[in-house]
Simulated assay, not measured.
Amino acid sequence: MEGVGSPLVAGKERTGGKARGIARRATLSDVAAEAGVSTAVVSYVLNGGPRNVSETTRIAVEQAMEKLNYRRNPVASALTAGRSNLVGLLVPDQSNPFFAELAGEFEREGRARGYLTMLGNTSHDASIELDYVRALADWRVRAVFVASVNEHEFVVDGCPIIYVHSAPAKSRLTAALFDDFGGGITATRHLIAHGYEDIHCLAGPSDFGPFGHRRRGWEAAMSEAGLSTKGRVHYVAASRLEAARQIRDLMMGDRCPRAIFSTSDEQALSVLRAAAEAGKSIPGDVALVGFDGIAEALQGRPRITTIALPLRRLAVEVFNAIEDCGSTDRRHEPLQGQLTIGETCGCQVA
């Protein structure tokens, strides 16, 4: 098994017909030559077997590795061991603050457990998602965490998949999700408790995954209270600027909502922008509750009332689930978000 290290071993390169000395990375053979042993013995030291080596030989090999600054090739190690210390994380759009924060939590938890996280952006494209999974499978990653945009489950041989945040409805693969439906109910009930009746819902560009579950939670709470949902669902763009334009048009129309449940904080931030452009005050003219709990929503001005999701707990749960990869019926209990009161719903806050 070969390895790579710092460029300490001399080699030759021809430039313009002349040979000049260059440095190349140390290999397993270089370590063996330096220590005066076979490459097999170096491999035994690196892998702790399968054959024993004497203490004197082990020290000689380790000193040679240190001298040459040798380090193992992770791909070669993965091919030998059958699995690497790499994990993949696929998100629809890392520029979205929610997915950026989710990726940060996964990277921190992975490092604490000895894993390195490779991040891929699928651009809301199911075919790109599948291409990434296939490529990561070739790297023998320990698992791929997928915030899926695909309504249909796919399986790639030799590549454990764990769905996070969103998953195909009928998937039987391991999945760690949030209680989006329950969160939608909680957010809407909070607005109803303020006495608002004309409560509109800002849904995502499609009804797939969390957006759809949250919209259905709003619908259930409205029905429970005997309030109409007719004409009060608005499917807006994922882009904050485009969503703000659509919401501004709504606010400047004949039926400006008295309250809005936004199925993401990205959209809630678009509401703030649109309200400023339309000359509406929040919450004086339009009350607002978001969903996700991103830092910009919780710490901005005004602070948005939102359902804050436990991203840290999600990261811990999915890394715990790595050992269950490939098993069926591994849908974990949905993680509950917390209603976090800000300045946009009408509550009196300090």
Rank of each mutant, 00 (worst) to 15 (best):
K280V: 03
R245T: 13
A287W: 02
V289W: 00
V236K: 02
C256L: 11
T263C: 15
F291G: 09
E242H: 13
A287H: 01
R245E: 14
A237T: 12
S281V: 11
I247K: 05
A238E: 11
P257F: 05
A259L: 09
R248K: 15
F291H: 15
R255W: 07
V271W: 00
A276I: 04
R273M: 13
R273Y: 03
R258W: 05
K280N: 00
G231E: 09
T263F: 06
S270R: 04
A287I: 02
S281F: 06
G231M: 09
S262Y: 08
R240I: 14
K280Y: 00
A259K: 06
V289T: 06
S264A: 12
A238G: 13
L241M: 11
I260Y: 02
G279S: 10
V233H: 12
G290Q: 10
G279L: 10
Q246W: 07
L241C: 06
R232V: 10
R245A: 13
I247S: 07
E266P: 01
M251E: 09
A276W: 05
P257I: 08
R248I: 06
G290E: 05
Q246C: 09
E242T: 14
R232P: 07
T263M: 07
R232F: 10
A244R: 09
A244I: 08
R258A: 15
G253M: 09
K280P: 03
E266F: 00
R240G: 11
H234P: 08
Q267S: 13
L272S: 03
L288S: 02
C256M: 14
A275L: 04
E277A: 15
V289D: 00
V233R: 11
M251T: 12
L269F: 07
V286E: 01
M251Y: 14
L250C: 05
D254F: 02
Y235D: 12
S264D: 09
T263V: 15
E277K: 08
K280H: 05
A244V: 11
A274F: 04
V236Y: 04
R273S: 13
S239G: 14
P283K: 01
A275Y: 00
I247F: 05
A287K: 02
